[in-house]
Structures are given as structure tokens and as C-alpha cells.
């Protein structure tokens, strides 16, 4: 299924989509594949793979640590593509969240080609704004990949419209001004931001940064089309005494999130 189809199906069911994030290669390449497959099996609708990067300025301590572990383990860009291929085989759509330099280094068109061949659905680009994305816009068109750019509460109306016009698949609304990391409370600014996006597009809107359990997923799912969860899932693996325990807690949280997005009908 494509990302768009998953959102359409969920919309028909009157619920939001659960999107779960995990860095490739964390704790190992095989371990990250097992983790993401477990998330999908437990009801996560879209898997967001993060490409580990040495300087992840949008990420808080949890994802930084996981990325560091992956890089210290020697994960390469091609391992991330391999992980995407393995997870995509389960049938869930897989999107890649990546800082820009590794893609530029690989070659933008070559990467788009290989991502499409691996079954990846598209890219989320936290440090690439459409203004700088000419090559990516062309490559994603050529290889029919989705493009998710970020919008923020501080985006002007003009920038928001321009950014959204360049998205395909879904739009990523960063709900709080800040980096990734589970928070006690999700942001009050989020519903307003989602409404601003809705005013200019029919594309689904995912809300990220801060969600850590099913209750918060339900709350965010009441106004957004997609609930994006990262640090809380990563922490399941990071804090587990061993791999089996990590997978068990990952399954439990994934199921809780899947229930959460179904708890409110819209």
C-alpha cells in the first residue's frame, strides 16, 4: 500500500494513522529490522526509518544516542536501504527520514532510484527546505517518491503554502518549537498549525515531536491525520536489558499507540 492509500483507508475508518520511527542500524542492522517489523505487526501503519547521521540537529538525546550507537556499529547508507527493503516486504509503507548531506553525498538521483528500488515510499527531510530542494524535487518526480517537508508554528502563511505545495504523501507539522523527545504534554500550538495546513491543502497532516503513549496518540489523533512517534519507541529498545525485552516493550507500546489512534473517531 502507498502512504496515500494508508491515509485514505484510515480516513474511511474515521481514525488517524500511527507513524513510528526507528533509526536503521540501531542496535544493529538486523536488530533494527526486527524492531520495525515488530512495530508493523503490532499495528503501526507507516514505518519511518531514520538514517543515522553524525550531526542530527533536529533530534533530542534519545534519538541522538540511538544514531550514535548505529554509527559506532558501522552502519552505512546501503545498510539503511537494506533495512528499508526488508521492512517494506511486510507490506507497510516505509518512509525515510534523513538529514540532507548523506543523500547529497550518495547522489540525489542515484539515491532516489535506489530508494524506489528498495520499496521505500519517500523522504522526510528535516534540514532541507523546498527553497534548496531543486535536485530532490526533480529526482522524486522521476522516481515517483513522496516528499515530506516540515512546517512549523513559526512558518509564515506564505512559506507554509509554498512548503505544502511541494509536499506529496503527507505534510509533517512539528507541533512544538523544539527537537524530538517525549514530553509530558503535547503542544497546544499543534491544532492551530494543523488547521493552517488544512486551509491550504487536502494532503494529510502528520504531527510529530513529543507523543509518548496511546493516550497522547488519541489526543493528537483527534485533530491530525497522522501521529508520529519517535523517541518513545526508540527508548523501548535503548532501555531494555536485552533484545527480547526490547521487542516486547516495543510491541506493547506500538499496540498502545495503535489503540490510541482508534480510540477517538473523527
Amino acid at each position: 500500500m502507498s502512504v496515500t492509500e494508508v491515509f485514505e483507508k484510515a480516513r474511511a475508518e474515521g481514525r488517524a494513522v500511527a507513524i513510528g520511527c526507528m533509526p536503521a542500524g540501531f542496535p544493529t542492522v538486523e536488530g533494527s529490522i526486527a524492531a520495525m517489523v515488530a512495530m508493523a505487526e503490532a499495528g503501526i501503519d507507516v514505518i519511518e526509518v531514520e538514517l543515522p547521521y553524525s550531526d542530527p540537529v533536529m533530534d533530542g538525546p534519545v534519538i541522538q544516542k540511538a544514531s550514535d550507537i548505529a554509527l559506532a556499529g558501522g552502519v552505512r547508507t546501503r545498510d539503511t536501504l537494506r533495512a528499508i527493503e526488508a521492512v517494506a516486504r511486510t507490506g507497510v509503507p516505509v518512509v525515510l527520514m534523513t538529514y540532507w548531506n548523506p543523500i547529497e553525498r550518495y547522489g540525489v538521483d542515484a539515491f532516489a532510484r535506489d530508494l524506489a528500488a528498495a520499496g521505500g515510499a519517500g523522504l522526510i527531510t528535516p534540514d532541507l527546505i523546498p527553497d534548496e530542494a531543486e535536485e530532490w524535487l526533480a529526482a522524486s518526480d522521476a522516481h515517483q517518491l513522496d516528499r515530506t517537508f516540515l512546517v512549523s508554528p513559526s512558518s509564515t502563511d506564505q512559506r507554509l503554502a509554498m512548503t505544502v505545495a511541494n509536499c506529496r504523501g503527507f505534510v509533517y507539522a512539528t507541533a512544538v518549537m523544539g527537537v524530538t523527545g517525549a514530553r509530558e504534554q503535547t503542544s497546544a500550538a499543534a491544532p492551530a498549525l494543523v488547521a493552517r495546513v488544512r486551509a491550504v491543502t487536502d494532503l494529510p497532516v502528520g504531527v510529530g515531536l513529543g507523543v509518548r503513549d496511546g493516550a497522547q496518540a488519541a489526543e493528537v489523533g483527534s485533530f491530525a491525520d497522522g501521529v508520529i512517534v519517535g523517541s518513545a519507541l526508540v527508548r523501548c529498545v535503548l532501555e531494555a536489558p536485552d533484545e527480547a525485552a526490547g521487542l516486547a516493550s516495543l510491541r506493547a507500546l506500538s499496540a498502545d499507540l495503535a489503540r490510541g489512534v482508534r480510540a477517538v473517531t473523527r
Binding site: L128, I129, E132, F149, L150, R159, T174
Partner: peptide, 20 residues
Amino acid sequence: VSGHFGRYGGRFVPEALIAA
């Protein structure tokens, strides 16, 4: 005007910083 020196420079930052 967009901060480029030939192909160099520009803005490769999160959207959250663009307004600032």
C-alpha cells in the same frame, strides 16, 4: 538574496528556524 555564493551557502536548516 537567498544567501548563495555560487553553489555554496544557502540555508540547510529546520523550517522552524527560517522565520528567525
